[in-house]
Amino acid sequence: MDPVFHWVTRIALAILFASAAHHKSQDLQGFGATLREYRILPSRWVASGSVALAASEGLLALLFLSGFALPMASAAAVFLLAVYSAAIGVNLLRGRRQIDCGCLGPAGSQPLSAALLVRNAILGFGAALVFLEPIDRSYSAIDLLSIAGGTATLVLLFSASSQLVAQASSSRQIGSPS
């Protein structure tokens, strides 16, 4: 894979996981309550589960940024996203759409929807791309521009689309009979 794509994906994923870990660690109690609502972990494991998830996201951000054990980080990120998708999928099947997905942190709540599964699949694809070694070639100034611009655009578009998904799901919830 071209090093520009490799770096853009790596840095964007590092920013994403760092911000997710930051949200969770800011309000561990709130995240614990969200996790309990998923009704997957037994209640006595919820507190340690929320710390473990926040810590693993923080660790993934560090690994993506530093480049240390990158293939392992890539596999772990795909696994983590698959676990999230499974938890969302199970609750969608149970019909518990109204619970907060815990994706926006303490800033807001977002009900579950199939769009979150699509989002996680795209993120998982990105994380899997990091598994591929970048080809060896020399960098020029344009490459640095492409990496900086590409990463910034990706992060902005990701936040904007997350907000759109959250708004679409909550307005659907307002319109639907309870």
């Binding site: 344009i142 611009g149 910034a152 655009t153 578009l157």
Partner: peptide
């Protein structure tokens, strides 16, 4: 190089505008 820099600046600016618009919505 100049054209690439200019394009990236505009793309990032557009991204910012889209983000601001979604917040407004």
């Amino acid at each position: 190089l100049v054209s690439n820099a200019l394009l990236w600046c505009m793309v990032v600016a557009l991204g910012l505008v889209v983000l601001a618009l979604t917040r407004q919505v």
